[in-house]
Simulated assay, not measured.
Amino acid sequence: MENKWHNAGTKLRELRKTLKPKMSVFKVAKQIHISGNYMSLIERGLNCPNDQILFNLAEFYGVDPGDLFKLYDKMIPPTLEQMNAIPSLRKIMTEISIDEKLSSDEKEAFAKRVYEIATQFINKED
């Protein structure tokens, strides 16, 4: 059975194999401040790295972060300047995040739904 992130992990392994001089998975992991075992799980497609790890990998490999985020069906989180440029989005996200009547699960469900809608919209534009 192929796992969900197999292709992404394979791509990261390919990036590592193109390094000159060659580096082990453990040396790359040390450079981006994670454990070698965790990096190995990522390369084998068994774990999905968080956003910060994806940014660190992109910087280390010299690739566009957007390319790595796409491997995991993620969007790059907006910067503060980008959020400030869309006041209505900033307002609703702030209201949801501070609403004490909503549980953490409800907030997470809302965020996932916004992400799904945004992904559909962006993919429709391509």
Rank of each mutant, 00 (worst) to 15 (best):
K27I: 01
Q82D: 09
E125L: 13
I96T: 14
V63A: 04
L89V: 12
I42L: 08
P87R: 07
I117V: 14
M93R: 12
A109W: 05
N123P: 00
D105E: 15
L71C: 07
T94V: 05
M75E: 09
L71A: 02
E125D: 08
Y72R: 04
M23E: 14
P65R: 09
K30V: 00
N7C: 04
D105Y: 06
E100T: 05
S104H: 08
E95K: 11
T79N: 03
K22F: 13
E108I: 12
D51M: 03
A58I: 06
L15M: 12
L102N: 03
R13S: 12
E43P: 03
Q31L: 09
A29K: 00
R113F: 15
P21L: 13
E2L: 11
G9H: 04
I98K: 09
L41E: 14
S88H: 11
N84I: 03
I98A: 08
T79M: 07
P21F: 14
M75K: 04
N3S: 14
W5R: 01
D126K: 11
F26G: 08
A8V: 02
K70W: 02
D67I: 05
E108S: 13
Y61T: 03
K4D: 10
M1I: 11
I32C: 07
V114N: 07
T10A: 12
G66M: 00
S97E: 15
S24M: 05
M23S: 08
M93V: 14
H6P: 00
K22E: 12
